[in-house]
Simulated assay, not measured.
Amino acid sequence: MKSETSRRDRRDSRWDEHRRARREQLVDATITAVGRHGAGVGMEEIATAAGTSKAVVYRHFADRSELHVAVCARVAANLTDRLREAMDTTTDPRQMLTAAVETYLAFLEADLELYRFVVQGPPVGHPADSDPIANLSHLVGDQAAALVAVVLEQAGRDPAAARPWGHGLVGLVRSAADWWLQADRPMPRVELAAHLTDLTWAGLSGVVTRKEDNA
């Protein structure tokens, strides 16, 4: 009996892995279709990019909402990974901030239609709180908070303010980035990144002066 149960469990496990792999392939195909057709891509176009039919897509995703969530999760994971990598290239706080801002803007600019696809929000009828992209700012905010905590600790300050300040910085950068994209990028990305870094660092550096410097 135990042997039969073990064989059934292995079969179930293999089938679960196949489903996960197939879902990842369909997410890849959706991203490809967005690149070809824009943020308003249809399910038929997604199925074509996957080399299959809509019926097969719906076999792995209950509806477009669920597929949208999976794409958002992929984008959020990729962005946070890149931010971590960029910030790990230096230990200088200002350079870390510069790297984070430039990485964020470059990520958006590299695929504008994909960004528009994920930020258009979950389709009608889908709960917003289960959409990973709704939490993207929080994920990025946590990265910024880690940076602020480092700056505060290096200055001998209490890092308790790191989280609100970090999330506030992300709100500033995201709003500026959204304006920049909607205005059809009226200035080069590098210039925008420099402006945002100057502004955020001016505020941050003003509150992280070492205690002994003020003595």
Rank of each mutant, 00 (worst) to 15 (best):
Q154C: 00
R116H: 15
D158M: 11
I133Q: 14
L172N: 03
D111L: 05
E113S: 12
G156E: 09
P122C: 03
E153G: 01
P159T: 06
A149I: 02
G171P: 00
R157F: 03
S137F: 00
D142V: 00
N135F: 07
A161T: 02
R163E: 15
D158C: 12
L169M: 15
S130V: 13
P164H: 03
P159S: 11
A160W: 10
A134T: 14
S137N: 12
V119L: 02
V151L: 08
V118A: 10
N135Q: 11
N135T: 05
G141C: 07
L112T: 13
A161W: 05
V140Y: 06
D111K: 02
G141F: 01
P123G: 12
E113V: 04
H126A: 14
V118K: 08
R163G: 06
P159G: 07
F117R: 08
R163P: 00
A146N: 12
A134W: 02
L139F: 14
V150S: 06
P123Y: 07
P159C: 04
D111R: 08
S137H: 06
V148W: 02
F117I: 02
H167G: 01
N135S: 12
V148A: 04
L172K: 03
G121T: 07
A155T: 05
G166W: 01
A160I: 12
A145R: 05
G156A: 10
D129F: 05
L172I: 15
V140C: 08
H138K: 08
G141A: 01
A146W: 05
L152H: 07
G156R: 10
Y115I: 10
V140W: 06
R163H: 14
V124K: 14
E113A: 04
Q143T: 06
P159I: 03
S130E: 13
V173I: 15
Y115E: 09
A155R: 03
A128Y: 03
L147W: 13
P132G: 05
A145S: 15
R174G: 06
A162L: 03
V173G: 07
N135E: 11
R116F: 06
R163S: 10
L147M: 15
S137Q: 10
G121H: 11
R163T: 12
R174M: 13
R116D: 15
V119W: 10
I133K: 08
G156F: 11
R174D: 14
Q143I: 02
A162T: 07
A162G: 03
V118E: 09
P127M: 09
V173A: 15
Q154K: 15
N135D: 09
L139M: 11
E153V: 14
Q143M: 08
G141T: 04
S137G: 15
V170E: 10
D131S: 13
L172H: 12
